[in-house]
Write a protein that binds this DNA or RNA. Sequence first.
DNA 1: CATGAATGAGTGTTCATTCAT
DNA 2: AATGAATGAACACTCATTCAT
Lengths: 208, 208, 208, 208
Amino acid sequence: MPAKSSSDKQGGRTFIESARRAQIVDAAIVVIAEQGYAGASFAKIAKQAGLSSTGMISYHFKGKDDLIREVVAEVMRVNGEFLLSKMDTEASVLGRLRLYITARLALLDEYPKHQRALQTIVNAVHNEDPELRGLTPAMTALATEQERRIRVGQEQGEIRQLDPRVLVLAVNGALNEATSRAAFDPDFDTAACARELADLFDRAARKQ
Amino acid sequence: MPAKSSSDKQGGRTFIESARRAQIVDAAIVVIAEQGYAGASFAKIAKQAGLSSTGMISYHFKGKDDLIREVVAEVMRVNGEFLLSKMDTEASVLGRLRLYITARLALLDEYPKHQRALQTIVNAVHNEDPELRGLTPAMTALATEQERRIRVGQEQGEIRQLDPRVLVLAVNGALNEATSRAAFDPDFDTAACARELADLFDRAARKQ
Amino acid sequence: MPAKSSSDKQGGRTFIESARRAQIVDAAIVVIAEQGYAGASFAKIAKQAGLSSTGMISYHFKGKDDLIREVVAEVMRVNGEFLLSKMDTEASVLGRLRLYITARLALLDEYPKHQRALQTIVNAVHNEDPELRGLTPAMTALATEQERRIRVGQEQGEIRQLDPRVLVLAVNGALNEATSRAAFDPDFDTAACARELADLFDRAARKQ
Amino acid sequence: MPAKSSSDKQGGRTFIESARRAQIVDAAIVVIAEQGYAGASFAKIAKQAGLSSTGMISYHFKGKDDLIREVVAEVMRVNGEFLLSKMDTEASVLGRLRLYITARLALLDEYPKHQRALQTIVNAVHNEDPELRGLTPAMTALATEQERRIRVGQEQGEIRQLDPRVLVLAVNGALNEATSRAAFDPDFDTAACARELADLFDRAARKQ
DNA sequence: CATGAATGAGTGTTCATTCAT
DNA sequence: AATGAATGAACACTCATTCAT
């Protein structure tokens, strides 16, 4: 068995290379969350990461697009894991909806910077940078899956006749708004908000 | 009756000065809506406005803050007028809520760039530009008023026991999400979305 | 005798024209004294003069050079008048030297902004603006006259053998330094400084 | 013994970094001396230094303040070294005064641009750039030390009763004036001026 | 693998000046 | 005689990116 070396690879990248990328991505998340998208220059990210030059970042990422994409991927990976862990047992559609709302708001306490960063990126990038459009498919895929679930609930008689797309839109819109609010209002009570929102959309969607 | 001259003033500004400012504000709205906040440089705005230099903009506005503030003010003026014209007769709280949702979505057809620009600015500015925080009070004031209305509805037995702040958050979150969606999905049916959302929040809020 | 009209001229300029020029020159003196040469933009001078646009200044002066030259001329006129009024009776060269020193320092109390403005201009303009070199002749002429006087004093046995140019240089250098000091040290005692400097140069120049 | 590399540091800066900074500071000294403070734009300094862009300067200095401060520090370092080397043996106060005058004027031959640049900066910065006020303390400290020396001379009976502050003011004023003169009069004889000034202030200050 | 140095386009802003009215 | 509007060059400064070492 050969000795561990810096050229051991995982996913086409050496160990140390992956570590550096992760370090930079983490720094980027913090800077974006705290300083906004426009404030997230390579200089500031390098400083946050404890690197001495921006060249470092350009060396590990093909461009700013690449870095931002990685940030989004990382946040979605973390969120996905968390959400999955909260939902896997529940069977009913309305129950899953309630769990989703609760879990999304729990994320605000668990990974506040991640949520803020993701939202900042999505808002900033929406139309500006054509190279970055590629990040939304992953999010629309999620929405599509949610809509499918709602339809199942309608077929099973759990959920009233409504446009599933609009319900999904409303739920996610409300959750995003809560994310914004939580970022600036330190007194924002995520648990209470979760209960209220869950009740609210339960009533809105439940048959009868 | 004195002859009209270029030095006639209104609100401390020359006629032509006001016209130029309006022209620049309009150009800024378009650029911000289409290219995002980061893409809205003086150079691009000047080009959109058909001006030959960015100095022109600096000549008419004290700084970028000033311009952005004017953009926000203009959008809120237009929106405010439109919303008021749609709401003044209705008496019941739930009725007003329905009208508000419908009117907000109608704005997407009436002034799509305005909505997109406002949303872009609010998102971008939230934490980035401390000079511009001053624009949010006007919007929180609106939210506070909406919460007050909901409380009235609760006292009158129209609306069930719920946290008014959360209902307002959810409604506005959904409307903002719809605004985002409409900006990129040309097939987005605002009228249908309005009906669905109105029903949704009516059910969510109505007593029994 | 014809009625007074705005086209009455003096020195090739109408009355009102001269008044405007004087008003602008006065404003320029204040701004230059308070904000320095680089800070003395047409915009600031216009504001200080209570004018609404910088075009006004360009209209009355051929260029910035022209304005600055006028400022220098005005200060030297005022200073010249004051100095003459203080010196005309004294006969001895050393006496005149003492009077000159005293009068120059008295000017700091009488017209502080004028002195500060003149010094600022001379320092800033020395080599920068070739168009403005023309203002120094007037000042070198003064120095030459002072040197001539010293020579007279030497011939009359009042003043010891020394290079008159160096004495004049030293006296004026000391006075300029005092002007600088007075501008920033509110406790600077011009009268005391005048007595000390007068004694100092009297001893330095007096025969035996 | 490790090989020399570009990352060898001294004083927290790379070797080549320090070299570039020195190169830029030298260029700045020349430009300021020749074109004045207002004329000393990054563009002109970059050109003088043979650099292709002004970004270079911003890369090596935090801002214009930083560069100017460095220029002042460099000139004062050079001057300080030179003055110290000329004065260390002399004991009597009047002797030291004579040496100081001579050395200051010798500096005009040794480092003419340095003197011109320093004077230009001090004059320009006095009231204009509040960020740069911090450079004067170093110079007032020098003056205070000189005044102290004069007082010692008075206690030792070498120097007559006079206000030491005024003597120091006069000496430095005269030396500054000579610096100005030397900058524009190529025939200015610094050595002769030094002898004359030394005699002049010796007589002015000496007891009896 | 890493980095310090360099680049050049782009940022918002100020400037003296011109000109039609 | 006066002025508001416009101009375009210049300003210091930041940016993501490249590259030799």
